[in-house]
Design a protein around this nucleic acid. Structure first.
Lengths: 313, 313
DNA sequence: GTGAAAGCGCTAACAT
DNA sequence: ATGTTAGCGCTTTCAC
């Protein structure tokens, strides 16, 4: 019987099964973008966790396109997926996520969400930014610039908050001139944005003695601007990034940064989602898990133990 | 009527439509991995082209797992997609692609395929490797090392071929000691592999005067090994990469490399696939389009026009 | 023009 | 244990 089936090269049809059962065994991943090493790492970790749970992963990659993202969310909601992991956000007012919430699709977000009630498993950017700013302050820096991304993105706003708080605790008044906004650009990636922001930073007088960057790629881009101006790192200016992308250890000067617990974040987000999928009706308070990033000290702030070793393990 | 539908918040069900019509309006993307800037760029370009053609993109990301890749191919074949773009391969003997071909799923590959008859739109790695090796030879280098990936991957084998041919044309006999294999690793990405291979390269005596690397990330990783050994680039050793990833311009020394025509490749691959989908029965000779990469000269080989400018446009 | 009916491939419930 | 049947939501066809 089974044998006959095989001989007739029978293949089961996923959509028919899905139509009949109403279950797709698919989890959607809603991504705003994958540029920057950490986003890719997060995506891969999430995908793996989804597969490990016996589900299939369906990538919804908006690539920075708001309209497309909304479209993808609607497709997800059209019974195509049983739940969604929100990997990334492009801003606080996230219409796509709202659609999912409204239609009762179970979701877990890996970014802070504003004004929406949903499970959230985030990396505490505020704590991370605080950690690294404090590190710089303790090394004696007082004029610490921040190359920051759009503050309407919750993750960026959090970083700014941590930066400002740490400064405040050390009695530093925030200097608006030291806040350099990263220009949004469709033609460059993060490196190019960092390079451009770094050039604007060079116009600030007096020059800051340290620069904290929104992420590692931005930091590496900015390193080049400073390098071209003859500024040495870390002797003249200390630099720090965020994410601990693989590139950070291979930057022109190995970059002090904040490692994100990507694996743990993905595992917890996905298992939380599976819980929600299993008990969709249960009206419980949304979970809000915050994971703390870890400071990784390398040579770029002049505080590295040994300059030669690049990887700590 | 339409109004009533909207008020009853009617949502169409994709799988039901698909079951009925037999058409999914989905194109699958079969990826072996996305690490390395160029793979991500290619993925995004393909995705965009698919959307532009009115189809949806379904990502099948094997993340280096052969079994998973086969599984994904089978899912694609189960009427889930109307065609597949093969973005990436892990080796010459590609069981997953074979499954798709056997079941008559239209495919276009962006990597060379061995022993399978299918449309192919590739970047000519042989020509690229030839170009950059010739460039190094013309700068006077004779001992040119090659940090190469697994030669069972067709793209790598092509690079090796171009490298060897260029050497031969300049009367250089290939030196086995100058061929350093990049170790496969699950724990490192490309940077780490380049770093490790670079360390092994340092044991070669006499040291080569130039190093051509399988890709930009490997080159940047190797730069660090050489840097830690006190070797200056390009004064002591010239370095070249492949891909022109965004990181290449922001390497410790801006990297000479080969830019791949990613956009054009994606556009042509996808439009070829749409042709196949439109006329599935037509028995025509498979197309084989080869696009030539462009040499991008930066400071890492000591031949850059101006060291300050990093982007040529 | 508008409306009814059949059936895509599957599974779950039911009858044997 | 095995076989039969109804129907998931849609589109296509055919009848009105």
């Amino acid at each position: 019987m089974l044998d006959a089936a095989r001989r007739l090269k029978y293949r089961h049809n996923l959509q028919a099964r899905q139509l009949r059962t109403g279950r797709s065994e698919v989890v959607g991943i809603l991504a705003w973008g994958l540029s920057g090493g950490v986003n890719l790492a997060r995506y891969q970790a999430v995908e793996r966790a989804i597969r490990a749970g016996g589900y299939r992963a369906l990538m919804g990659h908006a690539a920075g396109d708001e309209e497309l993202r909304l479209q993808l969310a609607k497709e997800f909601a059209s019974s195509a997926v049983e739940g969604v992991i929100v990997l990334n956000t492009g801003g606080a007012h996230d219409a796509a996520v709202q659609v999912l919430v409204e239609r009762g699709v179970p979701i877990v977000s890996m970014e802070p969400l504003e004004g929406l009630s949903a499970d959230v498993v985030t990396v505490d950017r505020r704590a991370g930014a605080h950690l690294v700013t404090k590190h710089l302050l303790e090394l004696g820096h007082r004029r610490i610039a921040f190359l920051c991304g759009k503050l309407t993105v919750p993750a960026n706003a959090e970083r700014f908050q941590g930066y400002r708080e740490a400064l405040g605790e050390h009695g530093c008044s925030p200097d608006e001139a030291l806040l350099v906004r990263i220009a949004r650009s469709d033609t460059w990636g993060h490196y190019g944005q960092g390079y451009e922001a770094g050039q604007r930073l060079l116009a600030v007088r007096p020059l800051p003695t340290a620069v904290f960057c929104n992420n590692d790629e931005v930091a590496i881009g900015a390193m080049r601007s400073l390098g071209e101006a003859g500024i040495r790192i870390p002797e003249d200016v200390a630099m720090a990034g965020f994410d601990d992308a693989e590139a950070a250890a291979y930057a022109p000067v190995p970059l002090t940064t904040l490692a994100q617990p990507v694996q743990e974040q993905a595992a917890r987000a996905v298992s939380l989602l599976f819980e929600r999928i299993a008990k969709p009706d249960e009206e419980r308070q949304p979970h809000a898990i915050r994971l703390t990033p870890r400071l990784v000290v390398r040579a770029s702030c002049g505080a590295a133990a040994g300059r030669k070793r690049i990887c700590e393990h």
